[in-house]
């Protein structure tokens, strides 16, 4: 499996990442994009702000990719997570996999985003329209 992993303050270039996956010559590509939602439980969000642990965040994503590659025959995968301010309607995370058939593409893509949310040292802070800000409640990575 070939892969592209990046934590970046830049906006996510989905076209370029899709091209990278398409060039794999597989038969199926599944992509998940996480974007900043405007309304959560009736409160209006202006932006999310993300912080990532240097080096460790990429390392953990690599591990998740290795775990996925053991479960499904992946040809290529791309995972990019943005840091800093992400306004409403913009993407904070791109997860994409290229495989031979659709079934493993769907399964692997789902696994990758679920594991990323449970394990990768990234934190989001939510800024609301009323000017208030708070850290989004997270989960303690298992394995201690």
């Amino acid at each position: 499996m070939e892969s592209l992993v990046k934590i970046t303050p830049d906006s996510i270039d989905s076209d370029r990442l899709l091209a990278y996956l398409t060039e794999s010559e597989g038969g199926a590509i599944d992509i998940f994009l996480g974007t900043t939602r405007r309304f959560t439980a009736g409160r209006e969000t202006v932006s999310l702000s993300y912080e990532a642990a240097p080096n460790l965040a990429e390392k953990e994503i690599q591990k998740i990719l290795s775990d996925a590659a053991r479960k499904w025959p992946l040809i290529r995968a791309a995972i990019v997570h943005r840091t800093g301010l992400v306004p409403v309607n913009e993407a904070s995370v791109f997860i994409g996999v290229a495989t031979e058939h659709r079934s493993e593409a769907f399964s692997a893509c789902r696994f990758l985003i679920d594991e990323l949310k449970k394990r990768v040292p990234i934190w989001k802070r939510e800024k609301f329209c009323d000017g208030s800000e708070e850290w989004v409640q997270g989960v303690t990575p298992s394995g201690d």
Binding site: S92, K117, R119, I122, W123, K124, V139, T140, P141
Partner: peptide, 24 residues
């Protein structure tokens, strides 16, 4: 790292304290 493991300050001179994560 696991909290029960001995910390080797030479191999690991820097430790991160990771609060509950909320990426994605």
């Amino acid at each position: 790292l696991r909290t029960r493991d001995v910390i080797d300050a030479i191999a690991t001179p820097e430790l991160y304290i990771i609060p509950p994560v909320s990426g994605g």
